[in-house]
Write a protein that binds this DNA or RNA. Structure first.
Lengths: 344, 344
DNA sequence: CTGAAAGCGCTTACAG
DNA sequence: CTGAAAGCGCTTACAG
């Protein structure tokens, strides 16, 4: 900037004003300055600007576990929304314990992020951080800012499976402590037909006994007449598909399987998995906009206000993506009654 | 900091020296300053430090596509290695075209990152950026800094499958333009038994004709006597497993399937997928250390040197994780000859 | 419409 | 061992 000022014989202040388009510079001079800036390959120092304005132009993203298969979708959506708003994204992983989450947030704040998007760990509560925060989890989470309407997503699944003729449902979740999973499963239950038979399988409980990656005992359910398998995410749905398929069950002829999240592989396995997709772009946009609103307001009003926890509780609707794992089962007639005896 | 200085009646310079442990402060005063800092909850402004020292303490991470299933592993490893070294990580997605990659790098540089880790898009070459860069791709990529030894990984697969008795191999890749995939497939080919029969399936070519998610024609291979399916990553391996399973093939009794990368679901599907794992922690550490070495050197020597492309070409060995998809096939006797006729 | 001055919070020679 | 001073590159009242 000083190089431009020197080359043109004007002041740094004028260069700054011209480049930021804040008016108060004659159009001709402004044009000359812009040209010279381009010519010199001028790149403003965002660091200096940050120091001066107190705004870094960077948002933090704290995730419970970067290794989570859903992470790519979230990170991509947040990165996009932030980039569109001219913000960078600093990532932090709270993998491990809840203390790590606190540390991760601290590290981010040391770096003067203007706001933080956090996907909290089970059962943690994000209090007032002294910095704008948007929480993405589930509407059931205290302090939640925005999330998919997981309950409604569960209802989508129930309606879909019931519409196919199913009356015997196995609901598959990993951990009953997860608000997201509880919402999904609760939503499903709330919409099952009156005469439905339901059993819930909690994977972590089974694995605690039989070890990770163990069979889920789904063939036992099949033998007991269950035909619909609704998992709380695609990873579990995939596990169900392979477990059933391996045992010789034909999907969707003999059983339907549905998942959540439309993870990377879901459309590409055989048969492709029917799933309920989150509108991550919408969620990210709401989260980022909520953050920006608080940031702008902080800047405008009394800065002593400090960190403000956002509390909008936006619920973004989910959409069902019907694929092959839930084609019409050959075992049902159009009334939904079983017409073949091979599976009672 | 000035608050500490004021509270103690010393200068900011002394506070700075005490807190940074640069010596030249009496132990007693230093201790008093540290105590007061803790008491006041002092958090240094990394922005100010960055402006003054010219180092932001932030590394950039540019990925070809955040949506890629391998991304979590990479991001996590880099975030860890960077955090251990006291650095933050700014992410950028070059999703879409090669121009986006250039833009992503520019945005990162505007934010004064001290160095950039880039996983380049197919066929792009990362030149001198005027900032330290570490490229992670494959040893066959020009400018590569560090990567897994994908060729050796391919050899691991070939040895493993040949050792099981297989002589008829289907190699599955997505895109022949990818250096990584070419290395993996090349490595496999280089170690197949002399009398082996080999066919390569390129998924993108098939999908260009039959649409995304279409069958890969694997049953045709089975009918023509192929028994070993070696995919260039777990996503394709999973696709092969489900396609074969769905058609009634029992894995591993009638066919073996092997993948790469040990993606999130690989250990949890049924049967669990045998795969070759990358040592991401080692790769990330080498990449980050390479960056730090250049950054420190820039700081010590002539800063006019500008950006230096690192050229170490470290190859990190891969390891095979044998799981159920490649148990000993029942169709082979101990000499590796077919003993059952059900699959010729 | 343009410029001189101050200051964001640090660090780093340089004096004392 | 400690402090006064300058400066990193910007922006923003305030004058002129």
């Amino acid at each position: 900037m000083s190089a431009i000022a020197a080359a043109l014989g004007v002041s740094a202040a004028t260069v700054s004003n011209a480049l930021s388009g804040k008016g108060r510079v004659s159009p001709e001079l402004a044009e000359k300055i812009r040209t010279k800036a381009a010519e010199l390959g001028y790149v403003p120092s965002l660091t200096a600007r940050a120091l001066r304005t107190g705004r870094s132009g960077v948002l933090g993203l704290v995730l419970p576990n970067i290794g989570n298969p859903l992470f790519p979708q979230i990170a991509q959506a947040i990165e996009n929304a932030a980039a569109d708003a001219g913000y960078g994204v600093l990532i932090a992983d709270s993998r491990g314990n809840n203390n790590m989450q606190t540390l991760a947030i601290q590290r981010l704040m040391e770096r003067q992020v203007d706001g933080i998007v956090v996907v909290p760990r089970f059962g943690t509560r994000i209090g007032d951080l002294g910095c704008p925060v948007a929480v993405i989890d589930s509407p059931s989470t205290p302090g939640n800012t925005v999330s998919s309407d997981h309950w409604q997503g569960g209802q989508l699944v129930a309606d879909h499976l019931a519409g196919l003729g199913h009356r015997n449902f196995v609901l598959i979740g990993a951990n009953p402590q997860s608000n997201v999973q509880n919402d999904r499963i609760g939503g499903m239950k709330s919409r099952l037909p009156k005469d439905a038979r339901v059993e819930v399988v909690w994977i972590e409980k089974i694995e605690a006994v039989s070890g990770p990656g163990c069979p889920l005992g789904l063939m036992d359910k099949i033998e007991r007449g269950f035909t619909a398998f609704a998992a709380s995410n695609d990873l579990h749905a995939l596990r169900a598909v392979t477990e059933l398929q391996r045992a010789g069950i034909r999907i969707p002829d003999q059983a339907s399987v549905v998942g959540f999240d439309d993870l990377a592989w879901s459309s590409v396995v055989s048969p492709a998995i029917t799933t309920v997709r989150q509108d991550m772009a919408a969620i990210a946009e709401i989260a980022v906009n909520a953050l920006l609103a608080v940031i702008d307001q902080e800047n405008a009003e009394i800065p002593e206000a400090g960190g403000i926890a956002i509390a909008q509780h936006d619920r973004v609707p989910m959409t069902l993506v019907a694929r092959q794992t839930s084609g019409r089962p050959a075992i049902f007639n159009s009334q939904g009654n079983t017409i073949k005896g091979e599976i009672r």
